[in-house]
């Protein structure tokens, strides 16, 4: 099934709107992944700024220990999540979707004047086009830049003997710092975006409970009722 075919099918489904239901769209593992990742990234960002010399709230040794362990845990989490994404097929959520500019236009203008969001959240479409693009960028650029440079830094002892080690360390520091700044900006915008739902806390609540009120097509609803593959709360 091509992405395009999928999209057409979804568009067709949108036209055949069904009723709204409280459905668990973020499974327990996704929420665990999201929140533990959030905690680790905040920890890494805070300790990282300390190591960078931006603040001196932690002594260097403590910052190194926390930063290193948090990084190791995050790597394990990502390895496992990558496995999860591929085994569950959820990786498709991050593929490119059409309508990015509509979403951008919405956040730049539409949201102010009360236009409806151009994207409808669906069971198979948890993210809008801009979100998918942003998360994809996160996963293939920002994330790898951070973990790759971080892992190379952690293994300093293996290559410290080479004559280029000094330059290498500087290069790693550069990449790691630059990516961390971008990550910081990403997180700021990401956190802000959570306030753009129905109510400022709607998205956060969704990410905690896992349930959101979304439209289901008749087929989806029938499928859920038949198989109980997805938790549904409203009846």
């Amino acid at each position: 099934m091509s992405a395009n075919g999928n999209l057409n099918l979804e568009n067709a489904n949108v036209k055949k709107r069904g009723g709204k239901h409280y459905v668990m769209i973020y499974t327990r593992y996704e929420r665990f992944w999201h929140w533990s990742q959030a905690l680790l990234i905040f920890t890494l960002f805070f300790t990282g700024l300390g190591l960078h010399g931006t603040h001196t709230m932690l002594d260097f040794r403590t910052a190194v220990v926390i930063h290193t362990y948090a990084a190791l845990v995050l790597i394990v989490l990502w390895v496992f999540t990558t496995f999860w994404n591929f085994t569950t097929g959820q990786w498709r959520q991050y593929l490119f979707k059409e309508g990015v500019f509509k979403v951008i236009r919405f956040y730049a203008y539409g949201i102010l004047v009360g236009e409806p969001h151009p994207y409808r959240k669906g069971l198979q479409r948890k993210q809008n086009a801009l979100q998918s693009l942003a998360y994809m960028g996160f996963m293939i650029f920002i994330g790898p830049a951070l973990w790759a440079s971080g892992i190379v830094y952690l293994t300093y002892d293996l290559w410290s003997g080479y004559s280029w080690a000094g330059t290498g360390l500087m290069l790693i520091a550069f990449v790691h710092t630059a990516a961390a700044f971008i990550m910081g900006a990403f997180v700021i915008i990401h956190v802000y975006m959570t306030t753009t739902g129905k109510t400022p806390t709607h998205y956060i609540k969704t990410m905690i409970s896992g349930y959101d009120n979304i439209e289901l097509t008749e087929a989806e609803e029938a499928y859920i009722r038949e198989t109980h593959a997805v938790a549904m709360k409203d009846d």
Partner: peptide
Amino acid sequence: GFYMPGRDSF
């Protein structure tokens, strides 16, 4: 002549 975390930055 070398980069040291906590001291140096670009």
